[in-house]
């Protein structure tokens, strides 16, 4: 097992190097004057020149790259122009908000999509099978920001069930003492039930939006792989040996069917991390996505670059976790390592 993890870690290294090079190139080697970006639109010519020297942009590209790597290794992502604050600190502060939202969104969609896919596969042609087909074709066509707005209109404006879409907590509450940074968990740790409910209320709509967004690929994959597994030889022989249908469907078929679903999660995360930005904007969620959007509008490039890099590193890490999870379930992977 340790072997497997080590091997996967090594495989992730080229991806990481690629990511760092690309984020570096995004600022330096592209047309236009990077110094002007960093100086902002209102800067004078001298200010731009000053920035150029300060950032080392007058040096050869390779020197700049070494310097960039050096900064990164200290966790230095530069500073925001508008606030003057170090980008890394701001991202670190906002990351839990984004992570809590994304993970809950994934949880919601798994909780709906996996049973839906399984029921559709075990009862082909049934109502639920048709429902699954509709969800998977319609789901991929829904712009995530549009879903979010519809949910707000229905559940906040019309029904009044949801709180105003303005961030992680109603203004009457103050955040729980930070342990994990996830309000749901921290409020429980603090033993504050009311706070838990309040933060859950804020989370439901955005998480549901993300959930609906990633429902389609997961449900489609679950259905397809469950269908394939159910008609496979080993399920037939498991039924022939008289195992209960629960054992056959859950212990034998389901665990095998989950393998391709876990693989698809990589792609789902790619979409989810992107969609997260849009959802954060719709719900005024104080995560790293809205940090990046605010910076984009202000033409403040350092936060954007830090954001892209952080997202990419998280994505590489998530893929690594997915690979390891796969190896835990599938013994064939362990041997390969």
């Amino acid at each position: 097992m340790g072997n497997l993890i080590l091997k996967r870690l090594l495989l992730a290294v080229p991806s990481l190097i690629g990511v760092v090079i690309v984020t570096f190139l995004l600022t330096r080697a592209l047309p236009g004057d990077p110094a002007a970006y960093f100086a902002g639109p209102a800067a004078t010519a001298e200010a731009v020149e000053e920035i150029r020297v300060k950032l080392g942009l007058d040096q050869p590209l390779i020197v700049q790259f070494v310097r960039y790597i050096g900064d990164l290794s200290h966790g230095d992502l530069g500073s925001s122009l508008t606030t003057g604050q170090p980008v890394a600190a701001e991202i670190k502060r906002r990351l839990p908000a984004s992570a809590e939202l994304t993970l809950l969104g994934l949880l919601v969609s798994m909780a709906i999509a996996v049973p839906l896919g399984i029921l559709a596969a075990t009862q082909p042609g049934s109502l639920i099978d048709h429902a699954c087909r509709v969800v998977t074709t319609a789901g991929v066509s829904l712009p995530v920001f549009f879903t979010g707005l519809i949910l707000i209109y229905v559940f906040y404006y019309k029904l009044g069930w949801a709180p105003a879409p303005l961030g992680r907590l109603d203004i009457f509450f103050s955040p729980p003492p930070q342990v994990t940074g996830f309000y749901l968990i921290d409020s429980l740790i603090a033993g504050n039930g009311a706070l838990f409910v309040a933060s859950l209320k804020q989370l439901i709509l955005p998480a549901l939006t993300l959930g609906i967004f990633s429902l389609a690929p997961i449900a489609r994959m679950t259905r397809a792989s469950m269908l394939a597994v159910l008609s496979s030889d080993f399920v037939r022989s498991a039924r022939a040996s008289g195992l209960s249908s629960f054992t056959v469907v859950v212990t034998y078929a389901f665990r095998n069917a989950m393998l391709p679903v876990i693989t698809t999660l990589g792609m789902v995360f790619s979409f989810l991390l992107g969609a997260n930005v849009l959802v954060e904007k719709v719900f005024a969620w104080p995560g790293i996505g809205s940090f990046a959007v605010e910076a984009l509008i202000a033409s403040d490039f350092a936060p954007v670059q830090g954001f892209v890099l952080t997202m990419a590193i998280m994505y590489v890490a998530l893929n690594l976790i997915i690979d390891i999870l796969y190896g835990l379930i599938d013994p064939r992977m362990r041997l390969e390592a």
Binding site: L26, S270, L272, A292, V308, M311, A312, Y315
Partner: peptide, 12 residues
Amino acid sequence: MAFPLFVLAMGI
């Protein structure tokens, strides 16, 4: 592919 695609598009 190592980037979440929408995020990369934003960066570009």
